[in-house]
Amino acid sequence: MGNKALRVVWFQAASCTGCTISILNSSSFKVKNLLLDEIVPGHHLCLLFQQTIMAGSGEKVLEVLREQGTRKDFFLVVEGSIPTKDSGIYGKLGEKTMLEWFGQLASACSGIISLGTCSSFGGMFAAAPNPAGCKSVRDVCKTLKVEKPIINIPGCPPHPDWFIGTIVHLLNRGIPALDDVSRPLDFYGGLIHENCPRRPYFDKGKFAYKFGEEGCLYLLGCKGPFTNSDCPLRQWNGGINWLIKNGAPCFGCVEPDFPEKMVPFFEKPKDNKT
């Protein structure tokens, strides 16, 4: 076909599959086009391994993973953090720990997208007492001494545009400009607080004290003043809504210290954060 494939292994470790579901919710770029069509002229995505949607099971699909370990021409998408406690015994796939699989795939691949906050920074399952010793992709790579380009697309879950937009940029122009925690600036370049439609309330000092009230949600726990994402502009699920529009505080889910420094979720943030 004269069409070049971006070959992708989508590895799910300690995740909840929420990142997968979120990407399947993509509304501007349709999933059927992601699976079957060109992404940009001359380039398509070849989803070699994705446990939630792939047809085959068992040995057949493990063979796909093993084969990638011997070739270098694939991109690794990681969903979830990697369990590392007791040599990774808390998470297994095909009689091997997720940690072992990750080590092989990470060493072989041409680059990594850490999809979601767990993969990017550790996230929910790495929260104290971190029962399975879950770690982010970057931390595990450091331990294993694997050096690969890593793009973080955090969010619990990440917005589908953030992921597919990054793929389009990769195919079109290469690695996008990243911030100091490896997030694409195009999507994570501004504070929620700066673009929040409830900002005028904050400036006037008008706060909501209980749910359903008019006003800024800061006292109900909003983490928008120190959370970097374009949620207020892009909005969610086809632009139909987002947390603050729905009267709920931002939980700060795209930040490296989610959830540990963002809780209690429904309490005013601690002063040192602002």
Partner: peptide, 21 residues
Amino acid sequence: RISQEALAIFGGKMPHQCGII
């Protein structure tokens, strides 16, 4: 996808909605 969008009208976003408290 549309059924997730319907949910988000009351839940703010999906997955991991914020509407039910």
